Simulated scan of single mutants.
Amino acid sequence: MEVMEIIKDAFVFPSKDMKILLIYVILSVVAGLFSLGGTFAYILGFIVPEFFMWGGMAVIISMLIGWVLYGYLVSVIKSGIEQSDEVPQFEWWENFITGFNNFIVTIVYFVIPAFITVVVGYATDIVGNFVIVCEEIYLQTTGVYMGASSDIALNALSQALTNLAISLSITIFVAIIAFVIFSFLQTMAQARLANTGSLSEALNVFEAAKDISRIGVGKVIILVILVIVVIGVVEVILSAIFAIIPILSILSLIVSPYLAFFAQRAVGLLYSDIA
């Protein structure tokens, strides 16, 4: 399918079964309430220790519901891969298992760029340079340089700040590149999970990279950018409306899942080119 066809189809798709969207919204609200209640219970736990247990139970329930929702989004991707016009129904146990697998995929594809960032940060000695900057500031504020030229003190601090800035710049640049690349790979991994139902296939980073090549790097980038633009435009328009009529902000409970369905459907339709 052409990119604009994908965008049009994906944007209309969630409205084809508002009942399913409503179920997703209700589950999202319930999960959010359990998460909020669990957090509040943990805070109370410092006063009444028994609340720690209730907080833990609430968080676990929220997480379990979240996995069902996370798994359902994979089924939306699958509907796109199969180019089905029907909004998938909730398959509770299957959605739960798929959601857990999707959670694992997300963690793995997040850990890899995070690890790369840590390695680069270590190689550029961010911590060491930061310590040196702190030491230089301490030496100047405590008057250790009183007997020396002020130029020496300033030059030492300036050099330390320069080294820290270089370390941070390199690390941040690499981090941005790594996370962007793995965000694309994660998108392909989720599509592979939807297409095969196999966690091992989804975790195959090299095959996920090949999928991007098979579809076309340009097409993948253009679609992702268009999806982001559409979501951004919708949110900006709604934010302006909500600012004028605050009570309508409750509609965001429906709009956010709608846009999530839109994005996942678009991924599935994109992946259908090679499925």
Rank of each mutant, 00 (worst) to 15 (best):
K8P: 08
T142K: 08
G55S: 13
A208G: 01
I241K: 02
S149H: 04
A260K: 06
I97L: 12
D273F: 01
L154C: 00
I112F: 08
N163W: 00
W93Q: 06
I132Q: 02
L203W: 04
V230T: 15
G80E: 07
V30H: 10
G80L: 09
N155M: 05
K78T: 06
F90V: 08
A209G: 05
L193W: 06
V230Y: 11
I215Q: 10
V68P: 05
Q186A: 13
L161G: 01
K78A: 12
A114N: 05
D125Q: 13
S183A: 14
F184G: 05
V229T: 15
K19H: 07
E2Q: 09
T98N: 09
T106K: 02
L226K: 15
M188R: 02
F242E: 11
V108G: 07
S198E: 14
F34W: 03
V205P: 01
D9P: 03
V118P: 00
A31L: 09
L253Q: 06
V217L: 14
I20R: 15
P246C: 05
V255K: 04
T142E: 10
F110E: 05
V180R: 04
F206G: 02
Q264I: 00
A165Q: 08
I250R: 09
M57V: 15
C134H: 01
C134V: 13
S249V: 13
P246H: 04
V76G: 06
M18C: 10
T187N: 10
A194E: 08
L168Q: 02
W93C: 04
M18H: 05
V133K: 00
I231F: 11
V119D: 02
F13V: 12
Y122W: 09
L154Y: 09
I241D: 06
S28N: 15
I221K: 12
A240C: 13
L259H: 06
E235S: 14
I241N: 03
G66V: 11
T196D: 03
G66T: 14
G143P: 03
T124R: 10
A175W: 09
F173H: 09
E235H: 13
Y258C: 11
I231V: 15
P88S: 13
L157I: 00
W67S: 06
N155S: 03
V267Q: 11
F110V: 07
I237Q: 05
A58K: 11
I61R: 11
M18T: 14
N95E: 07
L253N: 02
A260E: 04
G268T: 04
I237R: 07
S84W: 08
M188L: 05
L185T: 00
N163S: 05
V133T: 00
L253S: 09
E201W: 04
W67I: 07
V68D: 03
I152P: 00
A160C: 09
T141V: 15
V174H: 02
I137W: 02
I126Y: 00
I77F: 04
I254K: 08
V227G: 12
A191M: 06
